[in-house]
Computed example of a mutant assay.
Amino acid sequence: MSDTIRHIQLSSVVLPLATPISDAKVFTGRQKPMTEVWFLIAEITTADGLEGVGFSYSKRAGGPAQFAHAHQVSDVLIGEDPSDIGRLHVKMLWAGASVGRSGVAVQALAAIDVALWDLKAKRAGLPLAKLIGAHRDSVRTYNTSGGFLHAPIEEVLENATRSREAGIGGIKIKVGHPDPRVDMARLTAVREHLGDDFPLMVDANQQWDRPTAMRMCRAMEPFGLVWIEEPLDAYDYTGHADLARAIDTPIATGEMLSSVAEHLRLIDERSCDVIQPDAPRVGGITEFLRLSTIAAQAGLQLAPHFAMEIHCHLAATYPIEPWVEHFDWLDPLFEERMEIADGRMIVSERPGLGVTLTEQVRSWTVETAGVGRR
């Protein structure tokens, strides 16, 4: 007889950030500095006593909404076979169909979906990447968290040195400052600091209009960047496509899109060279894998956004050599650390995602709910 889902524990967790974070959206007045990240954590227990853990997240707003929606729909999984992940994902979608298939509606499901995949891999005694089918046991990794616009350039350079010495294989800095001279001065300083051959990326966080983006992208061509990220509004498919055709430097985008359907427009309109889906934002691992198959067929490079604990496994399954973003913000949530060596992030050999929650998570938990029986 198949194992069944007995209990799902949901936790809303607020992770405080040590330093308020500012990118271009703050400097243009569209957002306040980020001081915390909300996480929705799902812990699934089966009748046989097996456990899986997953998470999704939101920055600045949306955490309580994700928690509430997940609580409403998760009871449809009680008594179900946890191995039937695709069917269960559709069942949850239909349970919340009136609020659609993007945004909070799918981000709430992502934590549960990830927990189901973690559980399935643990049952098989395999790392998640091996369960899905890995192309490699490590992935190129780059650091973003040291290059935000609120940091003085001296601090950015120190962070870059520290990351490089730690084995990080690339550095990304934030641009999109209202004064383009600031962007160019910071980029020049970082390129000179790293040397011509070290992989360097920039991220404008959607803050340029079309004429500005064209000018800035052309001005940045001589810097030999791996990519220019989110030069335009995330939903400006046509503008991104025009840039991708006009600029030799690869154009990257996709992290802010919250469904597979939205990413399909990026692919159909050839709006990017590097696609940057985020599994927690698009609905979990099930949806990410559906999208990555299509992206690979289109010949796109892959660089998943944030959540390296999930994306290291998923990037390892992509047929084209990918990048994974290194953020240490989530370190307080997990007992384990991602291993970095020679510019690459090593795929964990532990079963499942290979992470366990810390006790600190409990102290940051602001709300809990359970469905089923313990």
Rank of each mutant, 00 (worst) to 15 (best):
residue 36 E to Q: 14
residue 349 E to D: 14
residue 40 L to Y: 02
residue 360 Q to Y: 11
residue 326 H to A: 04
residue 95 A to G: 11
residue 190 V to N: 01
residue 204 A to G: 06
residue 334 F to I: 05
residue 329 W to L: 11
residue 224 G to S: 06
residue 276 Q to A: 03
residue 270 R to W: 08
residue 266 L to H: 07
residue 45 T to R: 11
residue 332 P to M: 12
residue 195 G to S: 03
residue 314 L to H: 02
residue 223 F to A: 01
residue 368 T to V: 09
residue 160 A to W: 03
residue 3 D to S: 13
residue 98 S to C: 00
residue 235 Y to S: 09
residue 300 L to C: 10
residue 374 R to W: 11
residue 22 S to I: 01
residue 105 A to Q: 08
residue 12 S to D: 04
residue 29 G to I: 06
residue 360 Q to P: 06
residue 37 V to P: 00
residue 218 R to Q: 14
residue 242 D to E: 12
residue 85 I to A: 07
residue 222 P to Q: 08
residue 148 F to Y: 15
residue 104 V to F: 03
residue 207 Q to D: 01
residue 144 T to I: 07
residue 213 A to E: 13
residue 44 I to S: 04
residue 369 A to W: 15
residue 68 A to Y: 13
residue 240 H to C: 06
residue 318 Y to Q: 10
residue 212 T to S: 15
residue 241 A to H: 09
residue 292 S to P: 00
residue 191 R to S: 11
residue 303 A to S: 15
residue 139 V to A: 07
residue 145 S to H: 11
residue 114 V to F: 01
residue 200 L to I: 07
residue 270 R to F: 05
residue 171 I to C: 01
residue 95 A to D: 03
residue 171 I to Q: 02
residue 28 T to E: 03
residue 261 A to Q: 09
residue 50 L to E: 12
residue 270 R to C: 04
residue 256 M to D: 14
residue 204 A to R: 07
residue 128 L to V: 01
residue 347 V to R: 09
residue 177 H to I: 07
residue 366 V to Y: 08
residue 218 R to W: 03
residue 84 D to Q: 15
residue 199 P to R: 04
residue 280 P to C: 06
residue 194 L to S: 06
residue 217 C to S: 13
residue 353 L to G: 03
residue 102 S to G: 05
residue 259 S to E: 05
residue 291 L to G: 04
residue 185 A to P: 04
residue 349 E to C: 00
residue 119 L to V: 10
residue 349 E to R: 09
residue 307 A to I: 12
residue 32 K to G: 01
residue 75 D to A: 13
residue 109 L to N: 09
residue 162 R to V: 12
residue 244 A to V: 03
residue 161 T to E: 12
residue 186 R to Y: 13
